[in-house]
Write a protein that binds this DNA or RNA. Structure first.
Lengths: 204, 204
DNA sequence: CCTAACCCCTTACCAACGGTCAGGAGTATC
DNA sequence: GATACTCCTGACCGTTGGTAAGGGGTTAGG
């Protein structure tokens, strides 16, 4: 049953998402994907010539959605910079808490090695950031500068990075504990409060 | 030339550190370590029965040193909580900036997969934290609670996580850019200022 | 109607990796 | 001198990401 171009890509990505969600990112292999799609391994490799491409195709939509959510929150409130930061953090926290599988997909999956024993690791996730994420940082940095909190744009960009990373670190730890603990989505307010307590200590 | 117990462990760890520093964590393999030590692969496996053990032995001293530096900074200034947080951040930033190789060893190396295609990933680094790091978080959380910034200890612990993660994220990005940019150690003040700007926005 | 080209996929095959298995040389112990 | 223990060796294995070569089916051209 020959399929038309593009349809196979969708099937592969859907299966890959399922594998990451059900069996964990460690078990995302060409062989496993191929078996579940019902084709040979090389059929997968035909569409995604290496594993980095596959993972990137898997993660990119989520990264872009995250960036869109963050930028939208910044656009929503243009009057007060403090409110804008709060809206930014709350929007991103809500974004991730609402779909924990997607969060894990974005920030755990990319660390899988492309070759046996290799690892793109945290550097891929936090170091070499996706262009969409960079845009989000720029938008946040712009607000920080507009609020007069930073004179130099580079400082504001670093602050944006720190804010985002702080949120991710918190989410990651809670998502880890989640496997033993109560669901993360029931603790979203505590999460946001804790993070905002860090970012605006005078308010706590 | 038979070596006495323990000496081999030191040689292996020294070689492993060299490999991570010179060739990158991706190239840390049993074969490579064995070749540089001058023994067979199984000699390495005899002392470190699996790769996780090897990486853990490699990273643990650095993690403990980091925690010691953080706790020492918190002990130094017991009068003012704001000063304590500043001292904590500055101490950790200085600690990492002073030895970038060690920083990479701590926060990039652990992501290497133990089995081909496997990966402990960021979860190992940020999720399941080393006991020494947990102690450091507790010390920071204690100060935050003592300062009245958080009523509940769990919120303070989360805040401590967020502060540390924010710092790591910043360092990681700068360490990445370091390969193209000027040395990180020349920008330590800018780093600390940016991070403190996030943590205490009223001061900026 | 035949041929050439192209798309999509297949079967073989490979090297690198983490790791197991069985054993062997040397030293210490009784 | 036999036993046992420490430290290491060589042979081997399954899984992984990836390459090489080719084949069936559709399409376009003559």
């Amino acid at each position: 049953m020959p399929k038309r171009n593009g349809e196979m890509v969708e099937r592969i990505l859907a299966v890959a998402r399922d594998i990451v969600r059900e069996d964990g990112p460690d078990n995302l292999t060409f062989d496993r994907v191929a078996a579940r799609v019902g084709v040979s391994k090389q059929a997968i490799i035909y569409w995604f010539p290496n594993k980095a491409r596959l993972v990137e195709a898997l993660v990119r939509p989520a990264l872009e959605a995250e960036a869109a959510a963050g930028k939208a929150a910044l656009r929503a409130d243009t009057t007060n910079a403090g409110h804008a930061i709060r809206a930014f953090v709350e929007a991103l926290a809500a974004f991730h808490v609402s779909d924990l599988d997607r969060f894990r997909l974005m920030y755990v999956t990319p660390q899988i090695g492309q070759r046996p024993g290799r690892s793109g690791a945290m550097l891929t996730t936090l170091g070499r950031i996706h262009p969409a994420t960079t845009e989000m940082y720029d938008a946040l940095a712009e607000r920080l500068v507009a609020a007069g909190r930073y004179g130099r744009v580079i400082d504001a960009r670093r602050a944006a990075t720190a804010i985002h990373t702080a949120l991710l670190g918190l989410l990651l730890r809670m998502a880890m504990a989640d496997t033993l603990d109560a669901p993360l989505r029931h603790r979203d307010h505590a999460l946001i409060d804790a993070l905002l307590g860090v970012l605006t200590p005078e308010a706590a």
